[in-house]
Amino acid sequence: MLDKPQLESLPLAADSQARVGVSDQYAPQIVRPSRLSWPWVVTIAYLSIMLLIPMAAMITKSMTVEPAEFWRIATEPVALSAYDVTFVTSFLAAAVNGVMGTLVAWVLVRYEFPGRKIIDAVVDLPFALPTAVAGLVLATVYSQQGWIGQLFAPFGIQMAFSRMGVFIAMVFISFPFVVRTLQPVLQEQEQEIEEAAWSLGASPLQTFVRVILPPLVPPILTGVALGFSRAVGEYGSVILIASNVPFNDLIAPVLVFQRLEQYNFEGATVVGTVLLIASLVLLLLINALQRWGRRYAN
């Protein structure tokens, strides 16, 4: 069957014309601010006060340091160790949440069970909880005498007041991101595409890898990147669950604070600038990921 298709001139005119310009139909109208309309002025003023001026001030402050001196302070062993703890631990925490957040989002969307709505709400707890409270709770639970900490203590594993503690705090505070970026995409995914894949001969594994997973990768990566940048910036919970000892579990934001306490403004500014640049790079990355994720949606 179906060797030489010869259906040439079947009329499908209305259908082929139907598509022109449809995707633009519901796009918001673009306003070019030729006059200084007030929403535009307020936006610029707000962004300036909130973001641009403080950032510029910090960069200006760090510029007063000689480039060679800047480099020396930025690459001091204690600073390098702090970057290492901050970025590597944040990355590990974000990666763990990439996997666990995907699983949780999957269960919340695909499974029907009592208490689902409550669990769905609880996912946001790390967003709502003051980070100091989170740190306090985690430090209590994971300390040598804590509920979870005591399970590991006999094996000589110290959970709180170590790099492990930093990791735990970072996992906690960056947990909601992947769940929340993935959930809407999962909800929108039609289950019929799975049946379509099966009908075309795909196994359950092939269906997952080739049909279900690819559209989920961009939101998962976006969630991981958001979680990572949140973990890099985390301060309140880490300071309570870590011992904050240099070369052990000291994170860069705490290093900035410690330097300020010692009136070492220069040292604080330099490390702060390094963190600022890292955050900007991360943001660009997240933006690029989101654009990539939308490439086949209109």
Binding site: E190, E192, I193, A196, W198, S199, P214
Partner: peptide
């Protein structure tokens, strides 16, 4: 037999195309 082994073609109301 499983749907995969029946060698059928199935067309869905809402197309069920792979969007990616």
């Amino acid at each position: 037999l499983d749907v995969r082994q029946r060698n059928i073609g199935f067309v869905f109301q809402h197309y069920a195309l792979f969007k990616h």
